[in-house]
Each structure stands twice: as C-alpha cells, then as structure tokens.
Amino acid sequence: MNTLKNRYLSLDVFRGMDVALMIIVNSPGNGNTSFGILKHAEWNGFTLTDLVFPTFLFVVGNAMSFSMKKYEAIGDGAFFKKVFKRFSIIFLLGFLMYWFPFFENGAIKPIAETRIFGVLQRIALCYLFASLLLHYFKTKTVIIFSILALIGYNILLVVFGDLTLMGNAVIKLDKFLIGANHMYHGNGGVAFDPEGLLSTLPAIVNVIAGYLTGKFIQKNGQNFETIAKLLMFAAILVLAGFAWDLIMPFNKKLWSSSFVLLTSGIDLFIIAILIYLLDMRKPGKWTYFFEIFGRNTLFIYLLSELFIITLAVISMKGTSAYNWIADNIFIAIGGDYFGSLFFALWIMLTCWFVGYLMDKKGIYIKV
C-alpha cells in the first residue's frame, strides 16, 4: 500500500474508462450474442473493442512521463533494478493468471501447457523496452526508433510469412520459441497468440506515443493551444494509419503498423477532449466512477480476470457458474444481446465496488 499521487484528472479518468471497457468486453454473458461493437474484428478491420488494449499501453506511457522524472535522479543501476523489478512482477502476475486455478482434476495443472505470453506480459515487455529507450536515448532517437520499428515490423511480416492466421511471421516465431502448447488457442482452436513476441515490437510504439503525449502536455500546459496541437497530431496519425492500411490492413491480432498509427491517433484525440472537459472546465462528480478504476488499475484488472476464471471453473447444475448465471439470470431477463451486456456490466460493477471500498480505506496497490 502506498500513498496515491494524483497527476491530472484526465489521465486517471481516461485510464478508468479503458479498464471499465476492458472488463466489459472480456466478460460477455454469451460471446455469440454480444453486440458487434463489443467484439474484436475477426481478422482485418477495426472495432471499438480493438482500441481497448492499445489505449491501455498508451496510458501506461502517459503515466511513465511522470515517473521517469524520478528515475533520472537515482542513477542507472537503481533505475534498471526498479524497472526490471516492475517488469518481472507484472509478467509473473500475467503468467500466474493463466495458470490459475493451478489445479485440475486433483492434480497441479501442467506448466508445459500454460500460456506464456498474454495481456499483462505484453504490458510488462512494452514497459521494459520503452523505459530503457526513454531513459538512455534522446527523444529524437526514440522517435526514429519508433518509425523504424513500424517499418521494420511491416517488412518482417511480408518477408517471413503472409497476413493470414496460419501463415504469419508472428505465429511462426512463437511456435519456434515456445511451442504451440504455450500459446493461445482461442482462434477456432488454432495455436496463435495475439500477444506474441514479434508483435510486441510495434506495441512498444503505443507506449512511446503515450509518453511523448504526456511530456508534451506537461511542457505546454493544459490550454487551448495544447489541445489544438494534440488534435492536429491526432489527425495526422489517423490519416497516416488509413494510408498505411492500403498496404498493411488494420489488424489488432497482428498489431499491424497501420493499427498502431490509428489507435495512437484516436488516443490523442480522446486525451485532448478529456483535458478540455476535465482539466480546463469543472468536471462534476461523474468522474469519480472512473477514477476508482484509474487508482487501482492493475489490481482491478487482475480481480476481474480471476473473478471470471473462478466463475468458469465452478460447476453449477451441469454447467459452469459463469454460464448458469449469465443464462438463467441476465439473459433470461434481458434477452440474448442485452442480457449478455447486463452480465458484463455486473462483472464490471462488482469489480468497481471492490475498488470503491479500497479507495474509501485509502488502499492503492502499485507495483
């Protein structure tokens, strides 16, 4: 437990909105009857749900624009130790989350079949590499790296595979390094990890974009000129993303370079609007709901995932507790689509309430 230090309201609210939406899209009562906007694109394409994860990385970078100031004064050795410790904890939490509940049919679940890469693991890797780049290199060098990373990743995808589920370079590298048993099998049973190692390269740029945005806001202040410039940069990135989409389609699962530009541009637009609404105007009390998520982000996300997994493994009347509650309470009352949404909202609000109790007691869990 440590003391919460506010930065600017728009960052906490932005982060909170993203976590709330992340929980909703991760816990549909029935995935087959979720509204289309709450589903990922099947392969190429883009939906609101595809924005959730890159936005989380963008917000990680935004928060880093504050924390990196403190790291500059502690020396390289202490900096590396602190960053690597945080990376290790987040990566391990992600691995343990996929291994949970650790036992199956009275025996320990085999580590040989546990997924290695995943959401928290990607956050950890992106945080590590972005931190090292931003600490040891000048801003201009980091921007050049970002451009080369996006172009280089595009080239790697084309040279070492195609853009299909079975033939892309991401799946080939993961199978070679860790094997199919350690990969995600949610794409019709195909061993393909949307958080694979190779596609982490362009994802680092989302973190860098968030960091540079945070530094820009701190340097220029929260005013109309800053907002105008952020909106201009947002428009440039979105247009560049659509232009790149002509040769490398938007693809969240491959984390295509065009996808990075599009999502970074949208995030810039959202943070600019939030700065105006929340930091330059009197926001009102509604922001507190999202601040709860923003203050214990990692803990609440982990809680939501463990809550979902626990419901899925508990047996109830011939099915899982997850399915029984969704079908016999929420879908029975609200129908297929709204019932699935209401179930997801129930999961989200339950996690919010835990966060609310923690906030009232002044408990803020950070790593």
Rank of each mutant, 00 (worst) to 15 (best):
I108V: 14
F95W: 13
F84D: 06
I74L: 09
E72H: 12
L57R: 04
G31K: 13
L51F: 12
F56L: 04
F87C: 02
G106Y: 12
L93V: 07
F46L: 14
N62M: 15
D50L: 07
D76G: 06
F95N: 00
V60E: 08
F46A: 05
F91T: 04
L133E: 05
E104W: 02
K69H: 12
F100P: 01
Y71G: 01
M68G: 09
K70A: 14
P110C: 04
A107R: 14
E104G: 03
K82P: 00
L120V: 02
Y127T: 07
F102C: 00
S65L: 03
I116C: 04
F46S: 03
V83Y: 06
G45C: 10
H40M: 08
Q121G: 15
D76R: 15
I74P: 05
F100H: 02
F66L: 11
F100N: 00
F129K: 00
F117E: 01
F80V: 14
L48W: 00
K70D: 14
L133P: 02
N44Q: 10
G118K: 11
L51H: 06
F53V: 00
G118R: 10
R86A: 04
P110R: 10
C126K: 05
F79Y: 14
F84G: 03
L48H: 00
S65D: 10
V59C: 13
H40A: 02
R115D: 04
T55I: 06
S34Q: 15
E104D: 13
G31I: 11
G31D: 10
F87S: 02
L128C: 02
I108W: 14
T49G: 08
G36I: 05
T114F: 06
T114G: 06
T33N: 15
F46H: 05
R122H: 07
F91E: 06
N44R: 07
V83G: 01
G75R: 13
V52W: 05
A124D: 02
I111E: 06
G36A: 12
